Simulated assay, not measured.
Amino acid sequence: MLLHRLTRTAGATAAVLALSVSLAACGDDGDAKDTDSGSAPSSDSGMTSDAPSDDAGDTEGAAAQTFGPGCSAIPTSGAGSFDGMVKDPVATAASNNPLLSTLVTAVTSIDGLADTLNGAAALTVFAPYNDAFAAIPEKDLNGMVMEGKEKGQDSALYKVLAHHVLGANDDPTAVVGDQETLAGDQLTIEGDAESGMTVSDGTVTAQVLCGNIPTANATVYVIDKVLTGVK
């Protein structure tokens, strides 16, 4: 069982991301873990903006280590900001960030997944932002979420989510190369913080929009596509 694999890897390791809101029909019935992420606003494509935003004051430390053309779209204050996310475990941190709100419904549709993810010792999460899900027909996405509620870790959704997660907390240097995911397959990460970074599963290649975002137990790389894991 993949859930057993998650708890074996890196102590309490888990699978995936966090999602909510722009799933239309399904968005209202996905209860977000520990936060009201279902009501978080959806992104208006802000991840294409210029260089990272280094806030003055207490957010500067967390923001300083991030990179990518979309970092300036991250909220500059509150729980969804760099400084706010670093205080929370990854599922909670992502659910507080409105740019990742489409993800919460998927995670919370699988019973216990958010708890497992928050309890993991160390993770790296490649998190598709809201607009990445626009490429998936709404009917198909809603169907995956409903199947996740019914089948849990045996669902296709669970496998897709686990396909976006590594069982170690990797910075931009450590993450480069061929990496095994918690779904048991492989991602190839290329590039660096200066020139840009891509993540590929052999079928889909995503750009890192904002990378090296720290949370209490994981490093998050926001990406512009959903990695399907389908060869």
Rank of each mutant, 00 (worst) to 15 (best):
P75T: 09
A56T: 11
Q65M: 10
D83V: 09
T59Y: 13
S81C: 10
A73T: 05
A73K: 01
A79I: 07
K87T: 13
V90L: 04
D88G: 05
G68N: 06
A93S: 06
G57A: 12
V90P: 08
P69A: 11
A91D: 09
D88E: 15
D54F: 10
T76G: 15
M85E: 04
G57V: 12
A64L: 06
G61E: 15
V90D: 01
G61H: 07
C71S: 10
D58S: 12
P75S: 06
G84I: 07
D88V: 04
D58G: 10
A51D: 04
A73G: 05
A91M: 01
G84C: 09
S72Q: 10
T66G: 10
I74K: 01
V86C: 06
T92I: 14
A93L: 03
Q65E: 14
G70P: 09
G80V: 11
P52C: 07
A91C: 07
M85F: 02
A63R: 11
T92C: 06
G84P: 12
V90N: 01
A62T: 08
D88A: 14
S81G: 13
F67R: 06
P52N: 02
G61S: 15
A79G: 10
P89I: 05
E60V: 10
T66W: 03
A91G: 05
D88Q: 15
D83S: 13
F82C: 03
K87Y: 00
E60D: 13
E60A: 14
V90G: 02
P52L: 03
A73H: 04
A79T: 14
G78Y: 06
K87C: 02
I74T: 07
T76P: 04
A51F: 00
Q65R: 11
E60M: 09
V86I: 15
A79K: 14
V90A: 03
T59A: 13
A63N: 15
G68P: 09
D58M: 07
A91P: 07
A73S: 14
D58L: 14
A73E: 00
T66K: 05
V90M: 01
P75R: 07
A64I: 03
A79N: 13
S77V: 08
A64E: 11
M85I: 06
G80W: 01
G84S: 04
D54M: 05
P69V: 09
A51T: 05
T66H: 06
A63Y: 03
T66R: 04
P69Y: 05
A73Q: 03
F67V: 12
T66P: 09
G61N: 12
D50E: 10
P69W: 02
P52V: 03
D50N: 09
A94I: 14
F82G: 05
F67T: 08
I74D: 00
T59N: 15
M85R: 01
A73V: 01
S95F: 00
G70L: 02
S53L: 07
Q65C: 05
G61P: 06
A79D: 15
D50H: 05
D54C: 11
A73I: 00
G70F: 01
I74L: 12
A93F: 05
G61Y: 04
A56C: 07
G78F: 10
M85Y: 01
A63S: 13
T66M: 13
V86W: 00
F67D: 08
D54P: 03
D58Y: 13
S77C: 02
